[in-house]
Design a protein around this nucleic acid. Sequence first.
DNA 1: TAGATTGTTAATCGATTAACAATC
DNA 2: TAGATTGTTAATCGATTAACAATC
Lengths: 209, 209
Amino acid sequence: MKEQHISISVIKRLPRYYRFLGELKKQGFTRISSGELAGRMNLTASQIRQDLNCFRGFGQQGYGYNIEMLYDGIGEILGIDKPTSAIMLGVGKLGVVVAENMNFQKYGFNLVGAFDVDEEVIGKEVAGIKVLSLDELEAFCSEHKPKAAFMCVPSAAAPELSERLIGLGVTGFWNFSHYDIGIKHPEVSVENVHFGDTLMRLSYKVKNS
Amino acid sequence: MKEQHISISVIKRLPRYYRFLGELKKQGFTRISSGELAGRMNLTASQIRQDLNCFRGFGQQGYGYNIEMLYDGIGEILGIDKPTSAIMLGVGKLGVVVAENMNFQKYGFNLVGAFDVDEEVIGKEVAGIKVLSLDELEAFCSEHKPKAAFMCVPSAAAPELSERLIGLGVTGFWNFSHYDIGIKHPEVSVENVHFGDTLMRLSYKVKNS
DNA sequence: TAGATTGTTAATCGATTAACAATC
DNA sequence: TAGATTGTTAATCGATTAACAATC
């Protein structure tokens, strides 16, 4: 898997390829051409070939792409085969739903800890994990060295907490809070899940079409 | 508010401007220059001026931008001042959390109905709304004419259900399910919230930096 | 071999950045 | 008026699409 420099636009599309290919695989298909896949995904064949060619070796002229091999290959590029250990910060309603309904393994992560400040929540089990007090964060991290943090805390708590986590070696944030972790720390990776932003975009679209 | 053709890239950024400006407003600031805002948001001043100039009349040479006016203006562009009526499909764990914790009004929507197929859930109240049986969808829609649907159903239910909703006049989907509503229906607006996709992207980033 | 389909280069298109004249 | 800062045009950069030679 020789990767030169992969543009962020390509990376953004990979999960969607992965989903479509997984579906095709499940349906029993074994090969697909860029043209056929383009039709299903509403892309151009050219774009698919360009995207996949960033990584070399997936296609075969005159044949197309082997679905299983491509699926596994993209999974490997995304790092799904090598789970990153992660902790959840904030085990409120959202945190609980996310923790208990996401199959993290499927997406390249392994949830190893959960923290909250609420005495009501501390000590309870979520997704098979005992919720610890935030006071225990330092001890836990020096023992387990989690690399990623799922930020399900109120926005007000995010600035200080993210500083603390970065100090403890966390390099990736799955951020549900409103607070732009990446601005002060361009060296860490952040993926934001901002419900409000997507709703506002939908509002715009609905009203302008 | 004269809008020619606004590119999708600009629209995508508007909610983030809106959030930052709301914050600045709350902090008591009254004016800001593109340079200052660029620093805070980690953009270029040039991009901010280009973006805002799509809509005309926000800035003033030598002065900058009036925060309140800009905030309100962007809100208007996004259509936040004119709520779209929406219904929720699927009131499982995710649906409940979303319904009860999102202030839809704040983002340009008004939740007017909720539907499920589970007898356990039907009849209960969520966010002040009584959950109806999916059998009542047609009657409800012909009376209330909701324009948007929040899809919190299992992916398997999404294809058929989205067809049905489009037939009933729904033109916008906030889609939590895995199913690409937009492919068969390019005429409707869709905003996807795919937790898995963002996690996979984070996985890639964490492993490649 | 002939047909299909990729890999890859070149052309186009769009978005971002830089520069500066207009103007508050 | 002088200084600041926008609006806007031009330059650059990157991403997408088109085309076709390579090759399975």
